[in-house]
C-alpha cells in the first residue's frame, strides 16, 4: 500500500494531535487524585511542624524553664496566627 506525501504528513499531524490529546486527558484524569494526595501530605507536614513547636515547649517544662500551664497558654496562642493556604488552620482540643 503506497501513500502520497500529503497523506503521510496528514497522518503524522493527526497522530501527533491524538498523542497530545491522550497525554492531556491522562494528566487531567490523574490530577484530582494527585492533588488530594498532595493536600493530605501537606496536612501531615503542617502537623509535624506544630509538633516540633509543641515539643520545644514541653522541653522547657521538663527543664523547669516554664510551668506546664504557662507553656500551654503560650502554645495555644500560636495556632491562632498559623493560617495557611488560604483556608487552612489548626485547632486544639
Amino acid at each position: 500500500m503506497s501513500f502520497t506525501l500529503k497523506q503521510k504528513v496528514y497522518s503524522f499531524v493527526v497522530f501527533s494531535l491524538l498523542s497530545i490529546l491522550f497525554i492531556g486527558y491522562s494528566g487531567i484524569s490523574l490530577l484530582p487524585e494527585e492533588m488530594y494526595k498532595d493536600r493530605k501530605i501537606q496536612l501531615k507536614v503542617q502537623i509535624e511542624t506544630v509538633k516540633g513547636i509543641l515539643k520545644s515547649y514541653q522541653q522547657k517544662v521538663v527543664r523547669n524553664e516554664l510551668m506546664q500551664e504557662g507553656a500551654q497558654t503560650a502554645f495555644y496562642l500560636i495556632p491562632q496566627e498559623m493560617q495557611y493556604s488560604g483556608s487552612g488552620y489548626f485547632f486544639i482540643s
Binding site: 488530594y36 493530605k40 506544630v50 506546664q68 483556608s87 489548626f90 486544639i92
Partner: peptide, 24 residues
Amino acid sequence: RSYSLYFKPWNIVVSTGIYISDVH
C-alpha cells in the same frame, strides 16, 4: 478531611484540615 496528632504529655489533640471542595 483532617489530620490529627495526639500529644500524650498534655493530653491534647492538635488538628488541621482541608475542605474537599477547596481541592475540587
